[in-house]
Computed example of a mutant assay.
Amino acid sequence: MTNTIQHADFLIIGAGMAGASCAYFLAPHGSVILLEREDQPGYHTTGRSAALYIESYGNAAIRALNRAGKPFFLNPPKGFAQDPILTPRGSLTIAEADQVDALEAAYAEQAATIKGLEIVEGQRLLDLFPAIDPEKTVRGLYDPNDMDMDVHALHWGFIRGMRDKGGKLVTDADVRGLTRSPDGWSVETRAGTFTAPVVINAAGAWADEIGKMAGAKPIGLVPKRRTAFTFDPPEGLDPDKLPAVVNVNEDWYVKPEAGRFMGSPADETPSLPTDAQPEDLDLAIAVDRIENATTLKVGRFHSRWAGLRSFVSDKTPVVGFEPGLEGFFWLAGQGGYGIQTSAGLGMTSAALARGAALPEEVSSQGLKASDLALDRPALANAVYFTG
């Protein structure tokens, strides 16, 4: 640790997708330092995400953020990324005989707003995903609009863009203490001491712990473990030409991933903030569900991992200043939506952190700052999660 004191207009704690996107949109408006506790950004959650852009995914606030960021993803600024952020994939939600009513309800809810949404069965179902077991799966809901997201390109596009605008990334900067003085905030880390009038808490699963250091009230953040693995396809089946597949109950999914399949039990197991690792039981559950619903055989894992997705009670991000704690700003609770909301949430948090109104891209989608604020009713009785 050095004794150097560095100053900025904005200090952002956490260089995952949330912190990086906020830094990108803040950098044109003031000096930014992005602090990361690990030796590389995105280690705990962003780097373990295999994202789809699903415009209809999530609650009303999440869907508004999805829509607000879509133009950025489709047409990012020149030099932001070498390859497209979004590429066509499509998704197929499948149902067994006793799940058809749930599938029909999903179609009824989404059909009016999603162009091309299609109920499929029989040969059409097999054409879309030949590994469907027709003796079990009787109907599907196909959405051709869902797209793969290049998480690495997006994340580093934000970081690179921040740097190009004068921002700074500091790694190995685990926060040891936060203190408030009349001049602003002082953040002590193993990489040195940093000061700023505004501190943005984008620490992911650790956000409530950072808030506690600063003297803020908890927002009730609960990190939840999500397990995933990759495995080889059967001979003759090219995953890259197939849609992602999820059971209508959302208790497993399979997604093509670089010539292989990625599978998951779609678990949401509450966890303390930690370097999450896959549990043997979760892996076994996923394999059993996938092999029972399809003709795929997992065989052996090519890779396996787990990550934390952190939620508050209403599964809506918390974005705004802590009342009574001047200059302490929350950017937390993205849950399982952090990648696809990153552009919308980045421009939103950057505006609110500097005291500006929501950008037109966001407000035009019907989202209000109060929908994300700390004083919303859902957070009124939040407590610390203790495992």
Rank of each mutant, 00 (worst) to 15 (best):
A207S: 15
V222D: 02
E257C: 13
S313R: 13
V198C: 10
D375A: 13
A244M: 13
V120H: 06
V362D: 06
L126C: 09
H302Y: 11
K224F: 00
A108R: 13
G16Q: 08
A27E: 08
G166E: 10
G167N: 08
A191D: 03
A23G: 15
K241Q: 14
E291R: 14
R139W: 00
D314N: 12
S49Y: 09
A369E: 10
P182C: 03
F261G: 05
M1Y: 08
R124C: 05
K368G: 06
T348R: 06
V151L: 11
R309L: 14
G184F: 04
W252A: 02
P278M: 09
T171Y: 06
N3C: 09
A27I: 10
A102Y: 01
I119C: 02
N381R: 14
I210H: 05
E55C: 07
Y57E: 06
F129W: 05
G166V: 12
A353E: 03
G140V: 03
R304A: 14
D143P: 02
G327N: 04
R376Y: 10
F231A: 12
P71Q: 12
K78C: 06
P270T: 12
S264P: 09
A203E: 00
Q123F: 10
M262E: 10
L367T: 08
M347C: 09
A23K: 04
L296H: 10
D148R: 08
P359S: 05
W305L: 11
P256T: 13
M162W: 05
A191Q: 08
G211N: 05
T179E: 14
G58T: 09
L283Q: 11
P28N: 15
V151D: 02
A81L: 10
G333N: 06
F311R: 00
L221S: 04
L35W: 07
A258P: 00
G14K: 07
A108K: 12
F311N: 03
P41D: 10
D133Q: 05
W252P: 02
R163L: 05
R300S: 15
N201A: 10
D83Y: 12
S264M: 12
G166M: 11
P243F: 04
P130Q: 11
A105F: 06
G14Q: 06
M1V: 09
G215W: 11
L272A: 15
S342A: 15
E268M: 03
V32G: 04
T171S: 14
P233L: 13
E36C: 08
I5Y: 06
G79S: 11
P377C: 03
A50W: 12
A111T: 05
G16A: 10
A18P: 00
G69M: 02
Y337R: 02
A51I: 05
A228P: 00
L242Y: 03
L74P: 00
Y142S: 01
V222T: 14
G90F: 04
H152D: 14
A111R: 12
T341E: 03
H7K: 14
A131V: 00
G355E: 05
H152L: 14
A106E: 10
W330V: 01
V245C: 02
S342I: 04
Q123E: 14
L308Q: 11
D314H: 12
K165Q: 15
L128M: 08
P243C: 08
N201D: 13
